[in-house]
């Protein structure tokens, strides 16, 4: 339960205006630092909800697939250039960001991850790898500025951020493909 408390604190800290302004002032820290940390805050808080509403998760997320689907939708939604722009200009969208990433992505991720079979897990990582490669391609080679709020150079930087993250995920996939953990246990 302590964990959930920390998660809540993290969420509050990220919502402080100076913190959110700093993180949002750079495109890549907005998308690759603030957003994952919001998901992580939800991930930590998930324990609280799992304890309070066990039947809810049991009933609606029995095999983990609905939860992971919700997670994926929220994540894809927040990878769109347009949504980032709106978060900066419209308070309601900003509020939705601080709500949806922890509670609609972080919490279901925690609840679903354990329930998923390893092939689903790998499928998910592969999906995000492909998505990230695509996003990287889009941001780096897009001929125009995609966000009103960020310069082209920041967009290219974010693109390379996507590519490096995808690269790290590929390394992980290759590693788990070649490593047979049962041999070592």
């Amino acid at each position: 339960m302590k964990q959930s408390g920390y998660g809540f604190l993290l969420l509050l800290a990220l919502m402080l205006p100076p913190v959110s302004n700093l993180l949002e002032s750079i495109m890549i820290t907005h998308m690759h630092m603030q957003m994952p940390m919001l998901v992580f805050a939800g991930f930590l808080m998930a324990k609280f909800f799992q304890k309070r509403f066990p039947q809810f998760f049991e009933k609606w997320n029995e095999n983990g697939l609905p939860g992971i689907l919700l997670f994926t939708i929220i994540m894809v939604y927040w990878s769109l250039p347009r949504t980032m722009d709106e978060a900066l200009t419209m308070t309601s969208v900003e509020a939705f960001k601080f709500f949806s990433l922890p509670f609609l992505a972080g919490v279901p991720l925690r609840d679903s991850w354990r329930k998923l079979s390893s092939s689903w897990k790998h499928a998910l990582i592969i999906f995000f790898t492909v998505l990230f490669l695509g996003m990287g391609w889009l941001y780096i080679w897009s001929p125009v500025q995609l966000c009103n709020n960020y310069l082209v150079i920041e967009q290219i930087t974010l693109g390379w951020g996507f590519i490096t993250t995808a690269f790290a995920m590929v390394v992980y996939l290759v590693y788990s493909y070649f490593m047979d953990f049962s041999k070592y246990e």
Partner: peptide, 17 residues
Amino acid sequence: GLWIVCMLVLVGMAYVI
């Protein structure tokens, strides 16, 4: 393998910008 992946992500965070 996992530590190496985390390391690569951190390296990415520091060096990409």
